[in-house]
């Protein structure tokens, strides 16, 4: 449905070619009042990457994800997704992005189907196309049989799966996850692992904020560590030896804390 803008802005930064970056932030700053929460973030994410966004509580992970989702305006700097820029072309950016948070983003007094149908309407889906999409998503996340049950009767794991179905309604290229493992038991976490792997294998680009280093190491293709609103580490997973991630994480975050 969306074609790239006629004249994508040329992107060149210090010899690093980023013409193919799907997501790019340039000197992104977000401040609440006088308090800077993100300080000049520069990241480039290629199509198909699975980025684990790590960092202590309050380091700015959720704020960065909300920026990428176009839910909050940057104080300074730029965000580009698929060549479209925020906040001016927010609708085009949002069309490519699905967000799954640790909050369910669902209505508990509606059934799973009613929830999906409501959000599908907001995406302009209608008729048979909408119903077929809903059927297929419910099957994908293993909730087809529970589709007519009220969401308030769902377990935490089921909520999270329905939340993923909701985020996939408009078939976005990019999926943002904000601590999706919060409150999940072992089984539910394993199911979520599988959904993440499937989404990644189907070509989606994923950015996931998490505290689970071992999961990040297993699932992600790249690690970005935030501390106090700045990127303190950024490398692909192949460069990180087994069992090294924990050491990198504690070094990176403690160095930033000492500054």
């Amino acid at each position: 449905m969306l074609t790239p803008p006629p004249n994508p802005l040329p992107i060149h930064r210090e010899g690093e070619s980023s013409e193919h970056a799907l997501i790019e932030t340039r000197d992104l700053v977000k401040a609440y009042g006088l308090l800077p929460v993100l300080r000049k973030i520069n990241v480039q994410i290629q199509r198909g990457e699975f980025v684990a966004l790590l960092g202590p509580n309050g380091s700015g992970k959720s704020t960065l994800l909300r920026q990428l989702a176009g839910l909050s305006k940057p104080t300074a700097g730029q965000i580009l997704v698929g060549g479209w820029s925020l906040p001016d072309e927010a609708d085009a950016v949002r069309a490519q992005i699905g967000l799954v948070s640790h909050k369910p983003l669902l209505y508990e007094n509606l059934t799973a189907r009613e929830n999906l149908r409501f959000f599908a309407k907001l995406y302009g889906l209608a008729g048979d196309e909408r119903e077929q999409r809903i059927d297929s998503l419910l099957k994908q996340v293993g909730l087809y049989k529970r589709g007519f049950d009220l969401v308030r009767t769902y377990s935490r794991g089921m909520l999270q799966r329905l939340s993923i179905a909701r985020a996939l309604l408009h078939e976005p290229d990019v999926l943002l996850f904000d601590e999706p493992y919060t409150g999940l038991d072992q089984d539910a976490a394993t199911v979520l692992d599988d959904l993440l792997i499937t989404a990644h294998e189907s070509g989606r680009t994923i950015v996931m904020a998490t505290h689970q280093l071992e999961r990040a190491r297993r699932l992600a293709s790249r690690v970005v560590i935030l501390s106090r609103g700045g990127v303190v580490y950024d490398d692909v997973m192949e460069h990180i030896a087994r069992a090294q991630l924990a050491a990198i994480y504690s070094d990176a975050t403690s160095m930033a804390a000492a500054r």
């Binding site: 949002r94 069309a95 699905g98 909050k103 369910p104 983003l105 669902l106």
Partner: peptide
């Protein structure tokens, strides 16, 4: 509160509306 607490307002605002 129903829109805020579960984050539903965000989910609505993510759509092209």
């Amino acid at each position: 509160a129903m829109e805020r607490d579960q984050g539903n307002l965000d989910a609505m605002l993510m759509a092209p509306v």
